[in-house]
Design a protein around this nucleic acid. Structure first.
Lengths: 214, 214
DNA sequence: ATTTGTTGACTGATCGATCAGTCAGGATTT
DNA sequence: AAATCCTGACTGATCGATCAGTCAACAAAT
């Protein structure tokens, strides 16, 4: 079955399914959907190639399963953080953006690998767009609604635009990965994730407020 | 030869080379580098597959040539607009960002197709990163320097971060393409490009200023 | 208690299709 | 006629997917 949860008793059965999903995540992150190969995934997961098809059917379904599992965790964490934000507070907007940005960057919401997949999803073609629509849009709606409330607007246009643009900034940060260092002349150290997050929130908060201003 | 500039005299030789480059641009935009096929490009350009190899050698070189030609035009246009910006003006930052955003979005700097390639480049893997470094980094440096001057900072760290994050917002807009409509419930019409540009500049200006504030 | 079904997990071998790339030679231009 | 442009036919490699079949585990029947 490809319906996960195979451990009912001990909870300690790192079935090969998990090896495959992990291997697939890394492979898809490094080479993209088209670039990744079932053979490479199988080798990385130390299983036969046929097993991938046995458990997941097709390459598309394997890919979809990777996104489904990771996005579930990220969405849960996002909504959890969002629920803690006091929408009447002065720092509400920063709080919302923190809830939006932190999970995809943190080790909890996914390995470093998935961040690449995540950014690829958003700029992706039809296949990716369908997955985004299924797994990310519902949560997106709630974030947009929260932004709308904080901005005190009636319609959601500006809020939706804010969401999109802020997400773009997040993608840039994920894709960067050494690019900022290159552009500044290799002197800088790797930035701490909290520092990055802070800058991201600063930038996006300023952007949203500027966009919302009449 | 794959060394470009085949028109030395008349400049009017719509050789099959151009058909190929155009077809390749569309194909790469729609399917990505790995997803695109030489066969498909040949068919789209109405030439034999062998001709692609005759003119460009390999798929990699064809891809690189597409990026090289488009990026050249975009960079020229960008630097042209940047040169017109008065860095002491109050609207200097908006002017810089306008110079950064407009060319990749406009029909001049590339068809709608190339915009997809452009956004893919930035989130891309090693191959794309190398191409970005070669074709976009030099111009990026000049934009970063301009931003630094306008912000009145000494080091370029904040300016470089601003550049990166602003570029992320641009990518989000390019990748959007109907996504905003989806998130708001298909009521909205397609936005005019000038309107989009204005919002993009608004957002990014606000973001940069917020980031630059102590 | 041992034999006999039945199942899920897994693999090696191999399928047809498609991939990028090659080459000899015809067609066109100069 | 010499160089350049261009193509049909082809190659080896690799792709995702399928297949028959092995193996351990558990249940049912004897």
């Amino acid at each position: 079955m490809l319906t996960d949860d195979s451990q009912v008793k001990t909870g300690l059965k790192p079935l090969k399914v998990d090896q495959i999903l992990l291997a697939a995540e890394v492979e898809f992150a490094e080479r993209g959907f088209e670039g990744a190969g079932m053979k490479g995934i199988a080798k990385r997961g130390d299983v036969s190639q046929a097993l991938l098809h046995y458990h997941f059917g097709t390459k598309d379904k394997l890919y979809a399963e990777v996104i489904a599992q990771r996005s579930k965790k990220i969405n849960e964490e996002r909504l959890g953080l969002l629920a803690q934000v006091d929408l009447t507070s002065k720092t509400a907007l920063s709080g919302i953006l923190n809830a939006l940005f932190r999970p995809p960057l943190g080790p909890s919401g996914g390995a470093r690998s998935y961040a690449r997949i995540f950014s690829g999803l958003i700029v992706g073609r039809e296949r990716d767009q369908a997955l985004v629509k299924e797994h990310y849009d519902p949560t997106a709606q709630k974030f947009i609604e929260s932004i709308r409330i904080v901005l005190g607007h009636d319609d959601r246009v500006v809020a939706a635009q804010s969401y999109t643009l802020a997400l773009g900034a997040l993608i840039a940060v994920i894709a960067r990965d050494g690019r900022v260092e290159r552009l500044m002349g290799e002197s800088r150290q790797k930035q701490d994730i909290e520092e990055i997050l802070e800058q991201l929130i600063k930038f996006s908060t300023g952007g949203v407020l500027a966009l919302a201003a009449a």
